[in-house]
Design a protein around this nucleic acid. Structure first.
Length: 206
DNA sequence: TAGTCCCT
DNA sequence: ACCA
């Protein structure tokens, strides 16, 4: 029996179909203003297989300059679109963290896209959890420990599932090994969208 | 090492 | 494992 690492919480079907559709509408609006861009590996410039954009005050970007959060789109230079209130509500209900998320990374996975095992460690605040929402096709999600080479466990994520990496699970290695094509009807053109909500800065003490 | 490749 |  393979159990998820401590601090990793999988909430199956946290969002019903109607909520998922509403979120997809919000994300479409975001993408219309902040087009998907192609992130690159810092050292090598190798492109990641996902395409991404962000909403919220800060957005995660990856290019030759490194991994970082910045307040503007790397191509258009515009501020990121506002975080949809649905996501602020979800964060409030699920994160157990007082301050709101500052960044929502929107990752689009085609049928062939993957995400290698990695840690979310570009934030200043590791006290806040990372909240992830799956929309569209199923995927095989792998979670490990806080060190490379530790044991990993895999679970299938479906549209509407939410995963929370908090506490001891906050720095767990995780990634997406594969997309299961045509397993959802949510996205007309197929594929998978992952939304990752993160607190970047430590909340100020006022 | 948010990558690929290759092996079990 | 990779050798940057």
């Amino acid at each position: 029996m393979n159990v998820l690492p401590k601090g990793v919480r999988h909430i199956p079907q946290r969002l019903d179909r109607q909520e998922q559709e509403a979120l997809v509408d919000r994300i479409r609006e975001c993408v219309a203003r902040a087009p998907l861009f192609a992130p690159k590996m810092p050292r090598t410039g190798k492109p990641l297989s996902v395409r991404m954009t962000n909403c919220g005050e800060l957005g995660w970007v990856a290019d030759e300059g490194g991994y970082r959060y910045q307040p503007h789109h790397p191509v258009t230079g515009d501020a990121w679109p506002e975080m949809p209130h649905e996501l602020l509500n979800l964060w409030q209900e699920v994160s157990g963290y007082d301050a709101p998320p500052e960044a929502c990374l929107v990752n689009f996975y085609s049928e062939t896209a993957k995400m290698g095992l990695h840690q979310d460690r570009d934030e200043d605040d590791f006290d806040a959890p990372v909240v992830s929402v799956s929309l569209g096709d199923d995927c095989l999600f792998r979670v490990g420990e806080r060190v490379r080479g530790g044991r990993t466990t895999s679970i299938r994520l479906r549209s509407g599932d939410v995963v929370v990496l908090g506490g001891e699970g906050r720095l767990s290695y995780h990634g997406v090994d594969r997309i299961y094509p045509a397993t959802s009807t949510l996205l007309k053109n197929g594929g998978r969208i992952n939304l990752t909500l993160r607190r970047v800065t430590k909340p100020s003490a006022t």
